[in-house]
């Protein structure tokens, strides 16, 4: 903390994916922070803001790495936020893969070359996967077993692997990975919010796993605190408390509808293959077993204390 503030002749921050959910949450905070001198935005769309220095970079292009490197060489930065991840419905799986896996590869090599002091990457607690063998609370060192059936999760697991190897190769860069619990809030659009947006949510009969929920404001604060925190490594960023899936659905203003597992699975697969409405089959795993992450480490080392209880976070969805 002291060290970073001492060197604060003005923090220069670079952000990818500034137009995404997380980017939109973070930018206003950075704008307001007097310590932040400039914000280098590397994205395809220019966000509003006085401190914003926009460089158009398309991470899905093969020359993304050189573009990022050029931008960083031109404007050296102290902190690099790599937020270019998809949370919305993935229409084109290969594009998502290009953006997340290949894009991250480009970004990491550019960051390594530019010797950026601090790299912040968001992730998800869903990467731990929902497994029967898991303990009640998942710590950060739990292996990321992910969800085999979900490209959304598998890509992000791949990203985390890259980031970890980057950390090993570049000890001079302080890497902070924030694993967010399902994000809820008026501006969020992710599989979890889309799940509870419907009036009736089919669930698995006889199962009611524990979920966590993180309010978007808490998520923004966590991202912002990572800017100056004297910490390193992975952190679970979770809201206060836990909710059973049924409670979460109720809080969001929907009704759970328990269906027998085999029937449900078959119906969902059929509908998905026919291109009909429905949500990712992968969600069924998360409806079966609990996946509660332990947020103590973020509290101790990052100083992040969630303000919103899970039920408030989900209830915020309903109000929006």
């Amino acid at each position: 903390m002291e060290a970073t503030q001492a060197s604060k002749g003005g923090l220069r921050v670079a952000v990818t994916g500034a137009a995404g959910d997380l980017g939109r949450l973070l930018l206003p905070l950075l704008e307001r922070d007097p310590d932040v001198e400039s914000i280098l935005v590397l994205d395809v769309a220019k966000p509003a803001g006085d401190k914003v220095d926009f460089h158009r970079v398309d991470l899905t292009r093969h020359d993304a790495e050189s573009e990022v490197s050029d931008a960083l060489a031109e404007l050296p930065v102290d902190v690099f936020y790599h937020l270019a991840f998809l949370h919305g419905p993935v229409r084109d799986g290969s594009l998502a893969h290009e953006l997340e896996v290949i894009g991250t590869m480009s970004v990491l090599s550019a960051v390594g070359r530019a010797r950026v002091p601090r790299l912040i990457v968001p992730s998800l607690t869903a990467l731990y996967g929902a497994r029967g063998q898991h303990p009640a609370l998942l710590d950060e060192d739990t292996s990321l077993s992910g969800c085999p059936g979900s490209r959304y999760v598998t890509d992000k697991v791949e990203v985390e692997k890259q980031v970890r190897s980057f950390r090993d190769r570049h000890p001079e860069t302080r890497v902070i990975v924030l694993r967010f619990a399902p994000l809820f809030g008026p501006h969020m659009d992710n599989p979890a919010t889309r799940m509870v947006a419907r009036r009736v949510v089919p669930t698995l009969l006889g199962f009611d796993p524990l979920w966590q929920a993180l309010h978007e404001e808490d998520a923004a604060r966590a991202l912002y605190q990572a800017l100056s925190a004297n910490a390193e490594g992975e952190f679970n960023i979770v809201g206060r408390g836990v909710l059973p899936l049924s409670g979460l659905i109720r809080q969001a203003g929907a009704q759970p509808l328990p269906l027998p597992g085999p029937l449900y699975r078959t119906a969902l697969k059929t509908m998905t293959s026919l291109g009909g409405p429905g949500f990712p089959t992968a969600l069924l795993d998360y409806m079966h077993y609990g996946w509660v992450a332990n947020g103590e480490r973020a509290e101790e080392e990052l100083g992040f204390i969630p303000m919103f209880h899970a039920r408030d976070a989900v209830a915020a969805m309903r109000r929006s």
Binding site: L205, F207, D208, G241, G247, Q251, P256, R311
Partner: peptide, 13 residues
């Protein structure tokens, strides 16, 4: 059956 919907649940469930 999984529709309890409680909101006062501790981390162990």
């Amino acid at each position: 059956i999984g529709v309890g919907g409680g909101t006062t649940i501790d981390e162990y469930g």
